[in-house]
Amino acid sequence: VTLFVALYDYEARTEDDLSAHKGEKFQILNSSEGDWWEARSLTTGETGYIPSNYVAPV
């Protein structure tokens, strides 16, 4: 399991995006899409895309 933590708040801009709150942890499901990674929030269980530069490894 690849875990990352949000460094900043991010507000989803499309229905495919996933909002993130600073300190929230995510499981990365797919990081092969360049700057946008598919992730699952460990807080809400929701999945979507987050900007890779907004997260760091735990």
Score class of each variant (00 low, 15 high):
6 A>L: 06
14 T>Q: 10
22 K>E: 07
27 Q>I: 15
25 K>V: 15
47 T>E: 08
20 A>Y: 07
17 D>N: 09
53 N>R: 13
55 V>G: 02
9 D>R: 03
44 T>F: 02
11 E>N: 09
35 D>N: 08
52 S>F: 08
3 L>N: 04
25 K>H: 13
46 E>A: 13
3 L>P: 04
54 Y>M: 15
23 G>D: 05
2 T>V: 13
20 A>G: 03
13 R>N: 08
15 E>Y: 08
20 A>S: 05
1 V>G: 13
3 L>Y: 12
13 R>Q: 14
24 E>L: 02
17 D>Q: 15
24 E>R: 00
17 D>R: 13
37 W>D: 03
15 E>S: 13
33 E>D: 15
23 G>H: 03
7 L>N: 02
4 F>V: 13
4 F>L: 06
46 E>G: 07
33 E>F: 12
36 W>Q: 07
41 S>A: 05
54 Y>T: 11
7 L>S: 02
54 Y>Q: 07
45 G>I: 04
28 I>E: 00
21 H>S: 12
55 V>Y: 03
32 S>I: 11
41 S>N: 11
10 Y>G: 00
38 E>D: 04
30 N>Q: 08
30 N>Y: 07
5 V>E: 09
34 G>M: 11
6 A>K: 00
22 K>R: 11
27 Q>H: 11
51 P>V: 03
8 Y>G: 05
44 T>S: 09
42 L>T: 08
52 S>L: 05
43 T>M: 11
54 Y>W: 08
14 T>D: 12
23 G>M: 01
32 S>H: 11
13 R>S: 11
2 T>C: 15
7 L>G: 00
25 K>T: 12
47 T>C: 09
53 N>W: 15
42 L>R: 00
49 Y>Q: 07
42 L>P: 03
4 F>T: 03
19 S>D: 08
22 K>A: 11
34 G>R: 12
29 L>I: 11
49 Y>W: 15
43 T>D: 12
31 S>P: 10
27 Q>G: 02
16 D>Y: 15
33 E>V: 11
39 A>D: 03
58 V>E: 09
41 S>P: 04
10 Y>D: 01
22 K>F: 05
42 L>S: 03
46 E>L: 14
36 W>N: 06
29 L>S: 05
39 A>E: 03
48 G>R: 00
4 F>K: 00
37 W>F: 09
32 S>V: 11
47 T>Q: 09
48 G>E: 01
54 Y>L: 15
46 E>W: 07
38 E>H: 13
48 G>M: 03
22 K>G: 03
35 D>W: 08
41 S>M: 02
35 D>R: 06
23 G>S: 02
10 Y>N: 01
7 L>A: 03
3 L>T: 10
44 T>Y: 03
39 A>I: 06
5 V>P: 00
30 N>G: 09
48 G>K: 02
40 R>K: 13
3 L>C: 12
4 F>G: 04
38 E>Q: 11
36 W>D: 04
48 G>A: 03
13 R>K: 11
35 D>Y: 13
3 L>W: 10
10 Y>S: 01
30 N>K: 07
41 S>I: 03
31 S>V: 11
22 K>I: 10
32 S>D: 10
20 A>K: 00
51 P>I: 03
44 T>P: 00
34 G>F: 08
38 E>N: 06
46 E>K: 15
23 G>P: 00
40 R>M: 14
21 H>F: 15
37 W>R: 00
5 V>I: 12
16 D>Q: 14
8 Y>L: 08
57 P>I: 08
23 G>R: 00
13 R>F: 07
42 L>G: 03
20 A>F: 15
27 Q>N: 06
27 Q>W: 15
26 F>Q: 00
3 L>K: 04
28 I>R: 00
50 I>W: 01
2 T>N: 12
23 G>E: 03
56 A>H: 08
28 I>H: 00
21 H>P: 02
57 P>V: 08
8 Y>H: 08
29 L>H: 03
16 D>E: 12
3 L>E: 08
25 K>A: 07
57 P>M: 08
52 S>P: 06
18 L>W: 02
25 K>M: 15
19 S>M: 06
52 S>D: 02
19 S>E: 06
42 L>D: 05
33 E>Q: 14
43 T>S: 12
14 T>F: 15
40 R>Y: 10
58 V>H: 07
29 L>P: 03
9 D>M: 05
34 G>C: 11
35 D>K: 07
17 D>E: 15
27 Q>K: 06
40 R>P: 04
49 Y>K: 13
18 L>E: 00
28 I>A: 01
25 K>R: 12
54 Y>C: 13
10 Y>M: 04
35 D>V: 08
27 Q>Y: 14
4 F>Q: 01
12 A>L: 03
57 P>D: 04
41 S>T: 01
22 K>M: 09
25 K>W: 14
43 T>I: 10
16 D>T: 15
43 T>L: 13
12 A>M: 04
49 Y>G: 03
12 A>W: 04
31 S>H: 10
18 L>K: 00
29 L>A: 05
54 Y>K: 08
30 N>P: 04
11 E>H: 12
13 R>H: 10
30 N>C: 12
44 T>E: 03
49 Y>P: 01
14 T>C: 15
5 V>M: 08
58 V>Q: 06
32 S>W: 09
41 S>W: 04
15 E>K: 13
22 K>D: 02
49 Y>H: 07
39 A>V: 15
43 T>G: 06
32 S>E: 11
29 L>K: 05
19 S>Q: 08
35 D>L: 11
11 E>D: 09
50 I>E: 01
46 E>N: 12
1 V>W: 14
5 V>H: 04
33 E>L: 14
13 R>P: 08
34 G>V: 10
27 Q>E: 14
2 T>P: 12
29 L>G: 03
49 Y>E: 00
44 T>H: 02
9 D>Q: 05
48 G>Q: 00
15 E>T: 12
16 D>A: 14
45 G>R: 01
52 S>T: 07
48 G>W: 04
47 T>M: 08
50 I>Q: 01
13 R>C: 14
56 A>M: 09
34 G>A: 14
15 E>M: 10
30 N>F: 07
33 E>P: 10
58 V>P: 02
51 P>L: 07
24 E>K: 00
36 W>A: 06
48 G>I: 05
13 R>T: 11
24 E>C: 06
39 A>M: 14
29 L>R: 02
33 E>T: 12
49 Y>D: 01
13 R>Y: 07
7 L>C: 10
42 L>Q: 08
19 S>H: 08
53 N>D: 10
24 E>M: 03
1 V>R: 09
47 T>N: 04
33 E>R: 14
24 E>H: 03
12 A>P: 11
29 L>V: 06
36 W>G: 03
55 V>K: 00
38 E>M: 15
39 A>P: 00
40 R>E: 07
41 S>F: 03
53 N>C: 15
5 V>R: 00
50 I>C: 03
51 P>A: 05
24 E>N: 02
17 D>F: 14
38 E>V: 14
47 T>P: 00
37 W>N: 01
36 W>F: 13
23 G>I: 01
18 L>C: 06
3 L>V: 14
33 E>S: 14
4 F>M: 08
3 L>R: 02
50 I>N: 02
18 L>R: 00
43 T>K: 09
28 I>T: 01
55 V>L: 15
8 Y>K: 08
12 A>H: 04
34 G>H: 10
4 F>S: 01
22 K>H: 05
39 A>T: 02
28 I>V: 08
1 V>D: 12
35 D>A: 09
16 D>P: 03
16 D>S: 14
22 K>Q: 09
34 G>S: 13
33 E>N: 15
41 S>Q: 03
16 D>F: 15
57 P>C: 10
44 T>W: 02
3 L>F: 11
58 V>L: 13
37 W>L: 10
48 G>S: 01
15 E>N: 12
4 F>D: 00
56 A>D: 04
49 Y>T: 06
34 G>N: 12
54 Y>A: 14
27 Q>M: 13
28 I>W: 02
53 N>L: 10
26 F>I: 05
43 T>F: 09
21 H>V: 14
6 A>T: 03
8 Y>R: 09
5 V>G: 01
12 A>C: 06
2 T>F: 11
46 E>S: 10
55 V>A: 03
13 R>W: 07
22 K>N: 04
44 T>N: 05
32 S>K: 10
7 L>M: 09
36 W>K: 14
49 Y>L: 14
20 A>C: 14
